[in-house]
Simulated assay, not measured.
Amino acid sequence: MADYRAIMALLLQGRSYRQIVDAVGCSHRDVSAARKTLDDRGLNAGALAEMSDVELAGLFPDGRSKVSAGYDLPDFAQVVKSMKANPHFTLLQSWRTYVGARSVLRKYGYAQYCHLFGRYAVKNDLVATLHHEPGMAMFVDWAGDTIPIADAVAGRSVKAYLFVAVLPFSGYVFCQAFTDMRSEAWVNAHVNAFSFYQGIPQIVVPDNTLTATHRKTKGDAARFVNDKYRHMADHYGTAIVPARVRSPRDYPEDSVIPSPCRRPLVGPGFVGPYSG
């Protein structure tokens, strides 16, 4: 199933269909479905941010999830084995082999074949190397360990918490130490990272730190972008897209508010400081 939250967020930001297809890796049909849902239901960025994953999924029922017994089920275990043996082996090649094999059952089309392989990958916890575009994303988090800082005036040592941002395409890293991990420090760290990089990424991907996201209800898997963090994104015109809970390998697509101030990371263009 397409990542409709990311698609709708980018639509609300005013991105073109082609830009969204390239960014999310979806089809034009997926973008059209998201556009129709936004228009029919009158959704804005705030409403999208408040919507849980379950509620969002209910807007896009996936009829393809029902696998018909009349179709020849692909041998995806063998496909994965071929991919491991040959890094240049593609799904398109495997689909052509699948279609060419003799069977009395019907064959899946390429789009449905890819969809089924995606379900197989999730079910079997398979991972793949992600390829990033320049200026597309910035990953952020608090580093796991604190660092001691000597306070010469007070004659004591204090803890410093390290904020880390990275551009995945280039591996360009920005770090800054703070005396706490409160919301003000978190937002200021982003502002300083944008200034350091001299531009704004299209999306910012935080891990699920409490200064970035929160749960509406204790124990709820769905997390929502904190208001002050979202207002900062409003000012700079970027999208906050948290990594999925308990899915650290996502780190490498909840709310976005469009802004005419946005500048791409592919060149200089820092927007004025945020004071919200």
Rank of each mutant, 00 (worst) to 15 (best):
P87I: 04
P87C: 05
P87H: 02
H88M: 08
H88Y: 11
H88N: 14
F89M: 11
F89D: 05
F89W: 15
F89L: 10
F89A: 13
T90E: 08
L91N: 04
L91Y: 01
L91T: 04
L91F: 07
L91P: 11
L92V: 08
L92I: 04
L92W: 03
L92G: 06
L92M: 05
Q93F: 01
Q93K: 14
S94V: 01
S94F: 04
W95Q: 08
W95C: 07
W95T: 11
W95I: 08
R96Q: 15
R96E: 15
R96H: 12
T97Y: 01
T97M: 06
T97S: 12
Y98N: 11
Y98K: 07
Y98S: 10
V99L: 07
V99P: 13
V99G: 04
V99E: 13
V99F: 05
G100F: 00
G100V: 06
G100A: 14
A101R: 12
A101V: 03
R102E: 14
R102C: 02
R102I: 08
R102K: 14
S103Y: 04
S103K: 07
S103E: 07
S103F: 03
S103M: 06
S103P: 13
V104S: 15
V104F: 02
V104G: 15
V104E: 15
V104W: 05
L105N: 12
L105C: 00
L105H: 13
R106P: 00
R106V: 01
R106H: 14
R106S: 14
K107F: 02
K107I: 01
Y108L: 13
Y108A: 01
Y108E: 10
Y108K: 04
G109N: 14
G109C: 09
G109I: 00
G109F: 00
G109P: 06
G109K: 00
Y110T: 02
Y110K: 09
Y110D: 10
Y110R: 09
Y110F: 15
Y110A: 03
A111T: 15
Q112V: 10
Q112D: 08
Q112R: 14
Y113N: 07
Y113G: 10
Y113R: 06
Y113P: 11
Y113Q: 07
C114T: 08
C114H: 00
C114N: 08
C114I: 01
C114R: 06
L116F: 13
L116C: 04
L116G: 02
L116D: 09
L116T: 01
F117P: 14
F117D: 09
F117L: 09
G118H: 04
G118V: 01
G118E: 09
R119Q: 15
